[in-house]
Amino acid sequence: MLLRTYLAVPAVLLTLGAAHAAAEECPAKSTQMDDIIAVLEKAPSCNRAMKIFGACEYGASGDVQFGEVVEKKCEADFLSGLGAGQKRAYAHELKRCDDKYANESGTMYRSFTAFCRAEVSQRHSQKALKAGPKAR
């Protein structure tokens, strides 16, 4: 049983390594925050911005600014079409992200919050784009 455990660990590490190797390179001209923000702002879609965010993340509090750009990009797809109740529900989902790591110290938790918020915005964008324009 112990031998199986030792053999399984390298297989897991190889799998994780392959997934990491397949990850996209950050398309910004440098790792400077302004360069990454510029690339995020130029992203043609919410989903593309989210991929860039994942590729360029710092894993620290700097991700808050990247996440804000992604949120705005995604919100452009749906926010104006939400009613008052839907906007409150969306705000509540974002607040859940804020609350999730509020009591944790360390900059990586700010990154986790930024990704959580961006993912919420991305889900709403995808849902809105899938539904298409509202009939008038």
Rank of each mutant, 00 (worst) to 15 (best):
G85K: 14
A8H: 07
C56G: 02
P27M: 07
D77C: 10
Y109H: 12
E93P: 01
V120M: 03
N47M: 04
E25P: 00
K29R: 14
T107S: 08
R96F: 04
K95T: 10
D63V: 13
K130T: 13
T15G: 15
C26N: 00
C116D: 14
E93C: 05
P27I: 04
G81K: 06
S80R: 14
C97A: 04
K29G: 02
A135Q: 11
A8G: 07
C46G: 03
A91Y: 06
C97Y: 03
M33G: 03
T113V: 07
N47G: 09
A21F: 11
P133Q: 11
Q32G: 04
P44D: 15
D34K: 05
F53P: 11
G59D: 11
E119N: 15
A89N: 15
E25T: 02
S105F: 07
C26Y: 03
C116M: 11
K42F: 01
D63P: 13
A102P: 04
A84K: 14
L94V: 13
G54H: 09
A22I: 07
A49W: 09
G59I: 10
K72R: 15
V120T: 08
M33A: 03
A114N: 06
G54K: 12
S30K: 06
A84F: 02
P10N: 10
G132H: 10
S105G: 06
R123I: 00
K51C: 03
K134Q: 11
V12M: 10
M33N: 07
Y6P: 00
P27H: 05
Q86K: 14
E68G: 10
E25V: 01
Y90P: 12
N103Y: 07
G62W: 07
E25Q: 01
A102H: 05
E41G: 01
E75P: 02
T113R: 09
G81E: 11
M1F: 12
G132I: 09
Y101C: 02
H20A: 15
D63H: 15
R88K: 15
F53E: 09
T31M: 02
L82Y: 00
Y109M: 03
M50N: 10
G83P: 02
V9C: 04
A91I: 05
F112S: 01
G85M: 08
I36R: 02
R4E: 08
V39M: 04
L94M: 15
G83Y: 05
Y90D: 10
L14F: 15
D35S: 01
R48M: 08
A19G: 14
M108W: 06
S111P: 07
L14D: 01
A18L: 14
T113A: 12
A102Q: 06
G62E: 12
G59K: 13
V70C: 07
T31Y: 00
S30V: 00
S45K: 08
G83L: 06
C46F: 04
V120D: 08
H92E: 15
G132T: 09
Q65F: 13
S80A: 09
